[in-house]
């Protein structure tokens, strides 16, 4: 087996042994099931909300914690003394964390349609597009946290500290229609808020507004460029 395949296999095992990955799947599932019992089949709010939570948890918490602890432990440096590039490890991690997001969301959608009888998205293709764009934006923020945090614990702390206000503003803790208008308005401009609202629109089969899509694209590009500039291998 070549190095990249072996690295992917080993990193997959490590991801499965990491309790954080289970948590990132279980929290949104828990929210879906608890609140899902009191909604009807035409609901287009709860499922996009739980998907956004799953993407937010992986992107803001699991990804940066893993990356920063790899740097902290000197694993990236150790790799740069071997014929393989340390960048390969980051690439493999990005692929695996994306896979984790997809699995978590597949599970959420399966439970929503199979158990709760919630209607699946109206526009499948736009929904998928919005989903990928939002995931990219969250991962970019995760990479920035990984670039700034001195170690795994700090990355974990920053991730959690960022996640809750962002989730609140985005309407993931309290539905948007129950939030103060100004707060909800501000929330639309945050990455997670733009993601939730675009996902909600695509889900309901509406043509999504341009603003949240542009915002997500700008966040993705600007933040990942910043992360790439600031990232240190040691």
């Amino acid at each position: 087996m070549n190095a990249l395949a072996k690295l992917t296999a080993v990193e997959t095992k490590l991801l499965l042994r990491e309790p954080g990955s289970l948590v990132s799947v279980l929290i949104p599932l828990f929210i879906l099931v608890v609140f899902g019992s009191s909604i009807d089949a035409t609901d287009t709010t709860l499922l996009p909300m739980s998907l956004a939570i799953a993407v937010g948890l992986v992107g803001l918490y699991l990804l940066p914690t893993t990356m920063a602890s790899y740097r902290e432990r000197g694993i990236l440096r150790r790799l740069s003394t071997t014929p393989i590039r340390p960048g390969s490890l980051l690439a493999v991690q990005l692929v695996l964390q994306t896979a984790l997001v997809l699995i978590a969301c597949g599970l959420l959608m399966g439970v929503a349609s199979g158990v709760l009888g919630v209607r699946l998205p109206g526009g499948l293709l736009p929904t998928l597009g919005v989903f990928l764009l939002g995931t990219a934006a969250m991962f970019a923020i995760g990479l920035l946290i990984a670039a700034l945090a001195p170690n795994g614990r700090a990355a974990n702390g920053i991730g959690v500290l960022l996640y809750f206000p962002m989730a609140f503003l985005a309407g993931l803790i309290q539905p948007v229609d129950q939030m103060a208008a100004t707060v909800a308005r501000i929330g639309e401009y945050t990455p997670l808020g733009a993601f939730r609202s675009a996902l909600h629109q695509a889900w309901s089969g509406q043509a999504p507004d341009v603003l949240p899509l542009v915002l997500l694209a700008v966040y993705t590009l600007a933040v990942s460029a910043l992360a790439a500039r600031l990232f240190r291998w040691e």
């Binding site: 432990r73 000197g74 694993i75 440096r77």
Partner: peptide, 9 residues
């Protein structure tokens, strides 16, 4: 290397 670790798991 000095002070290198591997992933715990």
């Amino acid at each position: 290397l000095q002070q290198t670790q591997l992933p715990e798991n």
